[in-house]
């Protein structure tokens, strides 16, 4: 009986972390992801790291996209990843960061578990293709 037809969708959380109030980029990304057929959960401005952890775990997203413009990425991003690991959700979540990340910080973030960094001017297709090719599925 093959009555269990799978309906897979890439689920993605787009989150703005910390104090900066610029969400235009996050909106553009959310819409582009939607148009690419993703299911996008948008969690609004000023998310605390534990809020993003909560959303990532509960929504069981395949992708966490963090938009950060404030410069506090070296503190906030590792906090988030640490929390996600605590709930055993790291292994199957692709973590991408967008916004203003100086080149010298990239290595630090990659070492701390970020899978991709996309700065200003990155074509949307490039980000979408990266996600489609690298999304971590259980099987």
């Amino acid at each position: 009986m093959s009555v269990e037809d799978q309906q897979m969708k890439i689920r993605c959380l787009v989150a703005k972390v910390g104090l900066d109030g610029h969400d235009r980029g996050a909106h553009v990304i959310a819409r582009a992801f939607r148009d690419a057929g993703f299911e996008v959960i948008y969690s609004g401005l000023h998310n605390a790291p534990e809020e993003i952890v909560q959303a990532t775990v509960q929504e069981d997203v395949d992708v966490l996209g963090i938009s950060i413009l404030s410069g506090a990425h070296n503190e906030l991003v590792p906090d988030i990843i640490e929390g996600i690991k605590e709930y055993d959700a790291y292994e199957d979540t692709l973590i991408v960061v967008g916004g203003i990340i100086p080149e010298e910080d990239e290595e630090f973030l990659y070492e701390n578990g970020v899978d991709g960094i996309f700065g200003p001017g990155t074509p949307l297709e490039e980000t979408i293709t990266f996600i489609e090719e690298n999304v971590k599925r259980d099987e």
């Binding site: 939607r34 690419a36 057929g37 969690s43 952890v53 959303a55």
Partner: peptide, 20 residues
């Protein structure tokens, strides 16, 4: 149109932030 969706109801869940 594309089968995608933006789900924004989470934005309003401000009172119980971080409460698992």
């Amino acid at each position: 149109f594309s089968g995608g969706a933006v789900l924004g109801d989470r934005i309003r869940m401000a009172s119980t932030v971080g409460d698992m």
